[in-house]
């Protein structure tokens, strides 16, 4: 059942239950950054800029055995709905910054960058749920654009379950008003390994595994968009 106790038979934006919102991506949007990317899914827009490897300050955070990945997630004050409309950082932003770093770390190898840091700044000028996933997608492209060695890209999507129906890429209406369970998943599309799995809500074992299968399918599609955007940057040029 949904929050209001009604059956969920049709999605508010007319999508099929297994359809993602329209996606677009662009690489190299921040000129002065070492790598950058934009990832848009529906009305959620994430910008990511990568700086580094560079000297890590404060110095006590330095690790002599490896480089450090530091993510920063920020919803812009005018971007969202309700209680999240607030400038500056929050407990939620801090947590998402951490899980983003955890989701990206499995594909990176920073061993050769002892004592240094790789900074990833993610900003969302417009949000409609699925922000951490859009942020991870953008950050992954930005890291590739910055020239880091990566085992794979990281693609992420938020799937949900409302009224026993598995939903792809839920929007804010479904997340907040319908009360769908929210399951953000980040995946390494090449190997199918999962690097982020969160669950907010109640879901049966069967529905969870159904949702994960759907997430895997969607991440493959998303990684296609990411790859094309990276190649797009180098498709233009004279006499090729």
């Amino acid at each position: 059942m949904t929050k209001s106790g009604e059956k969920y038979t049709k999605r508010v934006d007319g999508r099929g239950f297994k359809d993602v919102r329209p996606m677009s991506a662009k690489v190299g949007i921040v000129k002065r950054a070492d790598g950058s990317a934009m990832f848009k899914i529906g009305d959620t827009v994430a910008y990511a800029a990568v700086y580094g490897p560079r000297e890590l300050h404060p110095k006590f955070m330095q690790d002599p055995s490896t480089g450090v990945l530091r993510c920063s997630y920020a919803m812009m004050p005018f971007s969202g709905h309700g209680s999240r409309v607030r400038p500056g950082t929050s407990r939620r932003a801090k947590e998402i910054s951490m899980i983003m770093a955890n989701a990206l770390m499995p594909v990176l190898d920073l061993k050769m960058y002892a004592n240094s840091v790789v900074d990833v700044f993610v900003s969302l000028p417009q949000t409609d749920a699925g922000t951490r996933c859009a942020g991870i997608c953008a950050a992954s492209m930005a890291l590739a654009d910055a020239g880091f060695e990566m085992k794979d890209m990281v693609a992420a999507v938020s799937v949900g379950v409302a009224d026993k129906t598995v939903l792809a890429d839920i929007n804010a209406h479904e997340d907040c008003d319908i009360g769908a369970s929210d399951i953000p998943v980040a995946m390494l599309p090449q190997s199918g390994k999962i690097s982020l799995l969160q669950l907010d809500g109640v879901v049966s074992k069967e529905k969870l595994s159904e949702a994960l299968d759907l997430a895997k399918e969607l991440c493959t599609k998303i990684s296609e968009v990411q790859r094309n955007a990276l190649k797009e940057k180098y498709s233009s040029g004279v006499s090729q």
Binding site: V107, A144, E149, M150, K151, D152, M153, L188, P189, Q190, S223, Q226, R227, L230, K231, Y234, S235
Partner: peptide, 8 residues
Amino acid sequence: DVVVPGQV
């Protein structure tokens, strides 16, 4: 060819 991380 331009190739990207994770591409077979």
